[in-house]
Structure formats: structure tokens, C-alpha cells
Amino acid sequence: MAGNTSTPGATVVSRTLSVLYAFDNAHRRLSATEVARRAGLPVPTTHRLLRELVAGDALVRGEDGRYAVGRRLWDVGLLAPDRTDLRHVASPFLSDIHAATRATVHLAVRDGLEVLYLDRLSGRASVPVVSRTGSRLPLHATGVGKVLLAYAPDDVRERVLAGPLPRLTAHTITQPGWLREQLDTVRRAGYATTTDEMTLGACSIAVPITRPASAATEPEVVAALGIVVPTLKRARTRLLTALQIAAQGIARNLH
């Protein structure tokens, strides 16, 4: 439960926050009753707050009557300094790669046990993909996700490997042992690939973006940069080189 703010002294702000905090990775779409229970609020109060949040585009109400986080709230979240700086620094590099390849280009970070797409560039010539800016997808089935999982803390990696590993297509890697071997290879090679694992007809290649070490910190993988194309058979080396050069440029400009 997100917390109980139904006490007489609870402010409007605290009640509103409790409604927003009712949503998390495991609870993305909630009914009004579920929000009320998780927020510890009376149902009538919850209904009123939900109406106001929907009117302000902080939440959206689906055709099934359930609520989800709205785009406006996502845009506000992107103002957090670390992600704002990352998107700003990476933007010209994504544009250069997209202009050269006309492929879908992704900038992503790990958010818990999922990939969060901070930016995406695509065009008419791009392979159709399910990702969009602000969306979250499984770590084990995407190129950027495999990079982020390979360099994630041990406890995160073990939680993902413990499953379940959803099968998105017939080619999705769902065997923990096989996925572990792939992640070991990613760390050795410095890049990840997928073939038809998230979407049929789509292959991807991705590399880590590493924040440089300083006197007080160790090098840290802060994001992943990836490209989605129909096939990697002929262009793998060219695409990998372009990604690595871009990732190095982004890293040099990160503060």
C-alpha cells in the first residue's frame, strides 16, 4: 500500500501525492477502488482527486475505467537533473546516427527491472517497433535491455534471471542459463544484439554509455544506446562502430 493519509490532518497535497504514489512498476493501471485502497483514502475523496488529476493530464483514464500515469507527469519526471542532462547531451548523437542509418535509434536507462526509453528517433524507413519515448519493456528481450542488465548490480541481475522471463515471440530467450551466458558475453564484447526477440522482423544492437571515472567514483554504466534494423548480417560492424563512437561522445560530455 502506498500509504495512509486519510487522517484529519492530511493536506490536499499529501492526499494527491498518495494517489500518484499508488502507481508503480507492479501497479501501472488501477481502478479507482484500487487507488483508494493503496493510497489509504476514502473512495469519494479518491474519485475527486482522480478527476482533477485527469483534467490536469497527470493521469489518464482508459476505456475500461482504469487509470494510468499521464504524459504530462512523464514530462515533469524528465526534468530530474540526471535524465535531463543525459537526454540533452545524447540528442545530437542520436540525430546523427538516425540521419546516417534511417533506423530507429534508442536511448534507454534501467528503471527497476525494466528498460525505460528516454528517447527514440524513427522514420518511414525504420523497422516497426513497440517502443516509444516513456515506455518500459522487459530487460531480457531488447538490445538496450540486455546491455543494462549485463552491467546491472548482481542482485538486480539475479532477480531478473529468477524469472519469470516472458516470451514475447518464439525467439525470446526465456531460459535463465542461456540468458546468463548471453550477459557474460555482453560484458566481454561490450555490446548486445537481439534477433526477433521483442518484435518479429526486428534485430537490434546496443552498447553501454559509461560515465567516466573520477577520483571519487568508479566507471558506471548509466544508459544504453541502440539501433533497431531488419537484419544485422551485413551492417553489424558499421552500426556497432557508429554506436560506440556516439556512446564515447555522450560519455565525454556527461557531468
Rank of each mutant, 00 (worst) to 15 (best):
G3H: 12
T5W: 12
T5Q: 07
T7V: 01
P8E: 01
P8N: 02
P8V: 00
S14V: 08
R15W: 11
V19C: 05
N25A: 15
E34H: 07
R37D: 00
G40A: 00
L41I: 08
V43D: 01
T46L: 06
H47Y: 10
R48P: 02
L53V: 10
L53A: 09
R61I: 07
E63C: 09
D64K: 14
V69F: 13
D75W: 15
D75M: 15
V76R: 15
L79Q: 11
R83E: 02
R83A: 00
T84W: 01
P92S: 03
P92E: 03
S95M: 05
I97W: 14
H98A: 07
H98L: 03
T101E: 08
T101M: 04
T101I: 09
A103W: 10
A103E: 11
V105Q: 10
H106K: 08
H106W: 07
D111L: 14
L113P: 02
E114K: 13
L118A: 05
D119I: 07
D119H: 12
D119Y: 08
S122F: 12
R124Y: 06
S126Y: 09
S126P: 04
P128S: 06
V129Y: 10
V130K: 14
S131K: 11
R132M: 05
T133C: 06
G134H: 13
G134M: 06
G134Y: 11
R136L: 11
L139R: 14
H140A: 12
H140D: 04
G143K: 15
G145R: 15
V147T: 13
L148K: 07
A150S: 13
R157V: 01
L161N: 06
L165A: 01
L168W: 04
L168S: 00
L168K: 04
T169L: 01
A170N: 01
H171N: 02
H171F: 02
H171I: 00
T174H: 14
Q175R: 05
P176F: 07
G177F: 11
W178E: 05
R180I: 00
E181S: 08
L183R: 08
T185H: 07
R188F: 02
A189P: 02
G190K: 11
D196I: 06
M198F: 10
M198H: 15
T199Q: 09
I209R: 11
R211C: 00
R211K: 10
A213V: 03
E218L: 09
P219L: 03
E220L: 07
A242F: 11
I245A: 01
A251K: 08
H255M: 00
